[in-house]
Computed example of a mutant assay.
Amino acid sequence: MIVGPTKTLFMDEISTGLDSSTTFQIVKCVEQIVHSTEATVLMSLLEPAPETYDLFDDIILLSEGQIQYWADRSKPYRYISVAEFANMFKRFHVGQLLENEFSVPYNKVRSHKAALVFKKYSVPRKELLKVNFDKEWILIKKNSFYTFSGLFVLKAMSNV
Rank of each mutant, 00 (worst) to 15 (best):
L62H: 00
L55F: 05
K28L: 08
T23H: 03
E13H: 07
S21D: 10
D58N: 13
F10I: 12
Y69R: 13
E99V: 06
L18S: 07
V34C: 13
I33C: 02
N159M: 07
I67V: 10
L139S: 14
V123Y: 01
K155C: 05
K108F: 02
R78D: 04
T52E: 12
W137S: 10
S122L: 05
D57T: 13
R125C: 03
F10G: 12
V153R: 04
F102G: 13
L116F: 07
A39C: 06
H93K: 12
E84S: 11
E99M: 14
L98W: 11
P124H: 03
K130I: 11
F85Q: 02
L9Q: 09
G65E: 13
Y53Q: 15
Y121A: 06
M43I: 15
D12N: 13
C29I: 01
D57E: 14
A49S: 15
D134R: 12
K141Y: 13
L128D: 00
M1C: 13
V3R: 15
K126I: 04
D54Q: 12
D19L: 03
S21E: 11
L139F: 11
S158Q: 12
N143D: 06
K135Q: 15
I59D: 06
V123P: 11
D58M: 12
G150M: 03
S81H: 08
N87L: 03
G65T: 14
K120S: 09
K135M: 14
L45D: 09
K7Q: 02
L128G: 04
R125A: 04
I138T: 04
T40F: 05
K135R: 15
L128M: 05
A39M: 11
F152I: 10
I67E: 09
Q66W: 04
E99D: 15
S36C: 06
H35A: 02
Q68F: 02
T40H: 09
G150W: 00
V34Q: 00
E64W: 05
S122Y: 02
H112S: 01
Y79P: 07
D134V: 10
G17Y: 03
F10N: 10
L46Y: 05
E136N: 14
Y121R: 08
D72Y: 07
A71E: 02
Y69E: 14
S111P: 00
S21A: 10
N159D: 02
N132M: 10
P124I: 03
V3K: 15
F102A: 15
T8F: 11
V34E: 06
S103F: 00
D12I: 07
G4V: 11
M157N: 01
E99I: 10
S20G: 04
N107Y: 06
K130R: 09
A114Y: 00
E13V: 07
M43N: 13
E31D: 07
G95I: 06
D54S: 02
Q32M: 05
S15K: 05
F118P: 00
H35P: 03
S158F: 00
P124K: 03
R125I: 04
K113N: 04
E47V: 08
L18D: 11
D58F: 08
Y77A: 08
K113V: 09
G17K: 01
I26K: 05
E13K: 10
